[in-house]
Design a protein around this nucleic acid. Structure first.
Lengths: 180, 180
DNA sequence: CTTGTCATGTAAGAGGTTACATGATTCG
DNA sequence: CGAATCATGTAACCTCTTACATGACAAG
């Protein structure tokens, strides 16, 4: 379960509660999960049982108690092992491509409308990404220049993925209008 | 369940058996599912019950019977509706980025090795893709010039995704070696 | 007075994978 | 003689999502 390591990674930065982690994951791009309670609270139980994290209950007056999780040395070692393990290929999943593959049944106008909708959605996504990039108040760990560099490269690379997609769909729309 | 529409798409091209579909999906890039029996045979039962496909049992001597599925008019209409429905964003899922995000715990040598492994895997993927592209014996429907064009654009776009990934990781490796 | 935030958790189900099961035939 | 191909299907399990449940407080 790679989400457990994803959580362990965040805890290797600083201690968090399940609620904190949920928000970070829900708002993150590279942590591509939905950030639902079920996965997160269960993962934390597993990590705790395995001794990779410790739990501290912070009782608050008039607010529910926070359970704050801190990574252990064993946890850091497990994370390190996972980081060094064989990397997997990135997956690009797009039902839109499947739609396009059978879109020859559509009229030129309908096809054009479909591409326009896709273009819009990508554009919205890019704008959302840019807006988020604007706020960045130390939301990423910058403990060394190298770490900062790595995070920058990941963020830029992710952003370029959507820009490429936008360029591609625009060119495709133009070509279709011109040729068919 | 978008895999049902993915199957319906293939059946809109020509009739297939579950076994045929399984192989097509397993070998396909854009049909990103594993192509496991469970999903496919179940989907066919659902499509059949909904009247979107018809089933013809072809008994063969000395070989198991083939159940060949043919799309109905209702099926074509359902596919068309799905194709025109609101497109979803493409998803780029990569556990490698999560690893990289916490890779500052590694030594320069270890980090370099990690990136090299990733580069290798992408390179293998690209070679496999190119090999597959070489065989292409009318494995895609080419009923109109526009359909041919659409399929070409999808294939090229997919290929460029991995090429970008390769360029990115190579540049990242170089930069890291130079700076840190 | 409804909506949002803080904070935990559970239930139900969709979606997807690996592995098992059968059985004849063909290829190396 | 073992492995692959043809061809169907089931069982068990993992992953992930949506929705439900509780309860206090703050802000509009």
């Amino acid at each position: 379960m790679s989400i457990e390591y994803a959580i362990l990674g965040l805890l290797s930065w600083k201690p968090f509660s399940g609620y904190d982690l949920k928000k970070i994951i829900a708002e993150s791009e590279i942590y591509y999960w939905s950030g639902n309670n079920n996965q997160i609270y269960r993962s934390l139980v597993v990590l705790h049982k395995s001794g990779l994290v410790t739990q501290e209950v912070q009782v608050q007056e008039s607010l529910p108690a926070r359970k704050v999780y801190t990574i252990t040395e064993k946890g850091r070692a497990a994370l390190r092992d996972w980081v060094r393990s064989l990397p997997a290929l990135p997956e690009m999943r797009s039902t839109f491509f499947i739609k396009l593959a059978w879109a020859d049944a559509l009229s030129p106008g309908e096809l054009d409308a479909l591409l326009a909708q896709y273009e819009d959605e990508i554009a919205v996504q890019i704008r959302m990404q840019e807006a988020r990039a604007g706020i960045q108040p130390a939301e990423a760990p910058i403990r060394t220049p190298r770490e900062r560099f790595l995070w920058e490269q990941i963020t830029k690379h992710r952003a370029s993925f959507y820009r490429r997609e936008l360029e591609w769909i625009r060119k495709l729309s133009d070509d279709l209008r011109e040729r068919f």
